[in-house]
Structure formats: C-alpha cells, structure tokens
Design a protein around this nucleic acid. Structure first.
Length: 519
RNA sequence: GCCAGGGUAGCUCAGUGGUAGAGCAGGGGACUCAUAAGCCCUUGGUCGGGAGUUCAACUCUCCCCCCUGGCACCA
C-alpha cells in the first residue's frame, strides 16, 4: 500500500537580516502540519530554506567587506540553526545559491521563453537603489533641492533606463481568474482569495523579470548581462528542491499541497507563481495559505519599541515544546496574532502544566504507588468510562484532523485540551483515592481508563510538542512503532500488566521572574 | 478615495429573528491523587453609535464613528 503524498513548503527567508520570531512562527506552522500528516499516514516532503540573491545581499556583504556568498552562508546558517533549535522537521533546506537551483531557474526560464511569454524591452522610470524598485511619479516627493525621493520609503530615486526581460503576465489574467473560480481553496484564508481576485480583475501588467544593475543572481540563459529578478529565482525553489525538471522527487511530490507563506507575499504566490507554472506547462500547487503576523500589544515588533521576542530568548524561557505550543496557540492561524510573554506564560501554565501535565502526573503517580507500577487491570467499563474513552479516541482524532485540514492549529489544540479537561473532571468524579479504600478493583479500572486516555493524548499532541509527547508515551510504555495516528482508539489500547517507568513531570509550570522587587 | 472584513464580558474569541455564550483572568466552595495544580459554583456585557422594518433584532435595512486588510513589481 503506497501512502498518499503531501508536499508542504514555507517561504524561503531572505538572508539580508537575521531570523526573527516571525520566521520561527512560519516554520513551526509548517512543521506542525508536516508532522500531523506524517503521523496521519502521508508520505510527507517538507521544504524550507533561504533566498540568497539580489542587490540587497550584494550590498550588505560589501558593507561588511565580505563576498556575497560568504555573507549568505553566514546568514543562511542562522536560519537553518533556528529551524533546528525549534525541532522543525524539514526534509530539505534549500538555498537559492545552490547550483542545482540555478540550473532549474534557467530551465523554467527557457520553458517560459519557448512558450513565447518572455520578451526584451526597455524599462524606464524612477528607480530606488535602496528599495530595488521603480516608482511612478505619483509615488514620489520632490525635495527643496530638486531631488526626488520615494514618498513611501523616503529613499532617493534616480531616472534609469534599463533593458529588461518581461514576462507576459497580462496574457494570464483570464486563466488566473478561472483558477480562482475552479479551485476556490487555492488561496486561503478566503478573504485573501477575494483580495487576489479583485486585484487580478483590474487587469495585469507584464512583469519585469530581469535586472542588469547587479550581478548577484542567476544569469538569464543566453544573455548573462541580465540577472533574473527576484521572483523567478525565488519561487522556483519549490520545484528545484525536488529536482525539477526530471528529478524523482519532482515526479513524486509535485504539485505542492500547501505553500505556507506570510500575508505580505501573497501576490507572488497566488498570481505570479501560477502564471509562471502555466507558462512552463507545469501543474499548479493545490493551495497557498497566507498566515498573519505576530504582534505585541497590537504593534509590530520593532527594536526601537523594545518589544521584540527573539527566538532564542523564547526557547531559553519556555523550552522548545512550550514555545512551539504558545506560538501555535495564541494566534488564529491566518490572522495577525498578539503575543507577549505574560500571555504565553499564562497559556502554557493553564493548559500544558495545570491541565494536561498535571493530569498525566496525578494519574501516573497513583498508578505507580497503587498498581505496582504496571498498567492496571480494568474491570467492566461503566458508562462514564466509555464516554471518556470515546471522547479521547477516534472522535478526538476526527475533530483535530478537521481543524488541520483548515490549518486551524489553535482550534486543533482546543480539541485535545477539552479532552484533557474531561479527564480531569472524570478523576474528580471517580475519586480513585477514595476507591483505593472502598473498591480497589474499581480504582484499577478508573486508572486504566485514564492511562489509556493519556496514551491517546500523547499521540495527538505530537505535532505541537514532539518531545514531551514522546516522554508521555514512554511513561505509559507505548512501543516506538505504535506512535502514529493509526494507533489512536481502543483497538490498540494499553495492555494490563505492562510495567511502567517511574513518572516524571513533562510540562513544568513557568514561573515568571517577579518584576517588582521590594525596594 | 475605492473595495473587503470587522467592532459581543478585564483578555482572546464563538454565536443566533424570540429571555446573551466559551476559555483565561477575578470571587466563593467542597475535596486532597497531583505541578499551591484539578473539580464545582459565581461576579461581569445597554452585543461600536443612531434611525428604521418586525409582535420581537445582538442577529435584517439605512446612516454615522472607529479598527484592520487590499488597491502591482514592496523578501
């Protein structure tokens, strides 16, 4: 039986600056999805990486007296390190300076050219070196000294006439509209789709896709004076990583199931990318999901406001699992989300430590003390037992899966936390500490049911908190090969008598430093 | 300016033409297996403002205010 394929990508990160929490957020979101799909029986390929070309990188390198490649190597290492530090399980980390990637870019370029979609023309206009962008007259402000600057970015512009290759994006307006029509789930969340549609309906202009003002990039085939402009280069990573045009992985995993990206680059993925692919005669990705940004107190994080949450600080404070959990929990995926240490600490303590962690701890410690440190022998199950087991079994998996299909990670968490809450209610109702004296056999049944619920919870939480999940499953002696979602539910329930290791807490409470010391 | 989506308890949000909901936070209680955790109960909102339709609107219509996003080459 061959598994269905699932290919998921993040955007590639531009190596002009070091990674911040937003990069971690996207990588973790994709990782949570990738892990879920693997556990749910898919053959997953998960790609992330770095975008390393362009004038900004060239200039930043120069400013530091480095070669662009050396500079890119250093920053790319930071991004790759950040992914590792959050236990992001990507199958590949692509860098656009890799040789195979450049070849793939040139290949797709030729394909688009053969299709008659690329032509040489002169681009004339006001150009900002700093922004690497042309501006229209209406976007400029003339200073008292007669010089012009971009009104938006305040950067100086100069009149440039540059030969450039263009892509006939205008020819794809109708086909793109048809795509959004036929495949409504192509662009998500749905309000993004509407934005894209209304944008395309205005009509599309051809796209300048080469530059001659710098060298750091992929040369245009047949005319190396030209360097491919950012999007042909960057977007192609999604197929070059798979070995396009004829790699095995390309045949296996393309078209992509989800491109996970930030909301700022939706246009490139929902408009340019499918147009390029159509031109090159390639299948289109099934879905583009634009997530929101993380804010602090409703404001963008910025160094000047001093409200930056650095990836490494977060891990130092909470550890990897709780950090991943907090990021996926606080914001509704797709919308902007407010995060702050107080909010995240409260969430981690309430849900991971108090609710779920304590459930595991109190149950296993009772089993350890009162059941000879073995999976207890259950008797006849009562309705309360069956109800709880039912909630924690297939029903929970189905509910969580439903939220994953919509990439609603926060909702998925709510589903299993509510099961954990139900289990805590059950303990209090059953009061096994009383049964210990009055009805030891019934106590064993109750503890068995709880252990089994914990097994199921351990399975389902893996995408979010992979390390803690393993520890929990270790503590209820779930064999290593029984840890995917096919083992959720009663068919694979714990076997009575299995020896259990001594329990140890997995989700410690976070104690925030007391801010105000008594003066 | 134009287009879209929002403004519901301290916070994050769900919700329906017919007496306002959840989680967290706050308050109280019973218990004690457990990570001073868990469980139960509870305070709390004129559902952005105004007008209209209706037996009845938070839910429909209109006007206004405020917020967010989009409006082309901006990683």
């Amino acid at each position: 039986m061959t598994k269905p394929h699932f290919y998921i990508t993040t955007a590639i990160s531009y190596v002009n600056a070091a990674p911040h929490i937003g990069h971690a957020y996207e990588a973790i979101g994709a990782d949570v999805m990738a892990r879920f799909k693997r556990l749910d029986g898919y053959d997953v390929y998960f790609l992330t990486g770095t975008d390393e070309h362009g004038q900004k990188v060239e200039k930043s390198a120069q400013a530091q007296g480095k070669k662009p490649q050396q500079f890119a190597d250093e920053i790319a290492a930071l991004f790759e390190g950040m992914c590792k530090s959050f236990d992001v399980s990507n199958d590949q980390f692509i860098r656009t300076t890799a040789d195979f990637h450049k070849k793939a870019c040139q290949h797709i370029w030729k394909k688009m050219e053969e299709n008659g979609d690329i032509y040489l023309h002169t681009y004339a206009g006001w150009y900002s070196m700093r922004d690497e962008a042309f501006y229209g007259e209406d976007e400029l402000t003339t200073l008292p000294d007669g010089k012009k600057i971009s009104t938006e970015s305040k950067t100086p512009v100069e009149w440039v006439e540059e030969e450039s290759y263009f892509f006939k994006l205008s020819a794809y307006t109708d086909r793109l509209l048809k795509l959004y029509e036929d495949q409504p789930e192509f662009m998500q969340p749905s309000f993004r789709r509407n934005e894209v549609v209304s944008f395309v309906k205005q009509g599309l202009k051809d796209l300048s896709i080469s530059r001659t003002t710098f060298d750091w990039g992929v040369p245009v085939p047949g005319n190396p004076k030209h360097i491919m402009y950012v999007w042909v280069d960057a977007l192609t990573n999604y197929i070059s990583a798979l070995g396009y045009p004829d790699g095995e992985n390309f045949k296996k995993y393309w078209p992509c199931d989800v491109h996970l990206i930030g909301k700022d680059i939706i246009r490139f993925h929902a408009i340019y990318w499918p147009a390029f692919l159509m031109s090159a005669g390639l299948p289109l990705p099934k879905r583009v999901f634009g997530h929101g940004f993380l804010l602090t107190a409703g404001e963008k994080m910025s160094k000047s406001l001093g409200n930056v949450i650095a990836p490494r600080d977060m891990i130092d404070k909470y550890g990897v699992d709780a950090s991943r959990y907090a990021l996926m929990r606080e914001a509704t995926f797709g919308q902007d989300g407010d995060i702050s240490y107080p909010l995240m600490t409260a969430r981690i303590n309430a849900e991971l430590a108090n609710n779920l962690g304590n459930l595991v701890q109190r149950t296993l410690s009772m089993i350890n003390k009162n059941c000879d440190a073995k999976v207890p022998q259950p008797g006849i199950l009562e309705d309360a037992d069956k109800d709880l087991l039912q909630k924690a079994g297939q029903a929970m998996l189905i509910a969580v899966r439903g939220e994953f299909e919509k990439m609603q990670f926060s909702r998925a968490i709510e589903e299993f936390i509510s099961v954990s809450h139900a289990a805590n209610m059950y303990i209090d109702e059953q009061a096994p500490w009383t049964l210990k004296k009055t009805d030891p056999a019934r106590m064993a049944t109750v503890l068995y049911v709880l252990a089994e619920v914990i097994r199921n919870l351990g399975l389902i939480i893996q995408p979010f908190v992979p390390n803690a999940a393993q520890k929990i499953m270790d503590q209820v002696a779930v064999p290593a090969h029984e840890r995917d979602f096919s083992f959720i539910g009663e068919a694979h329930a714990l076997k009575a008598g299995t020896p259990l290791p001594a329990p140890a807490g997995v989700f410690p409470r976070i104690v925030d430093e007391v801010v105000a010391k008594t003066a």
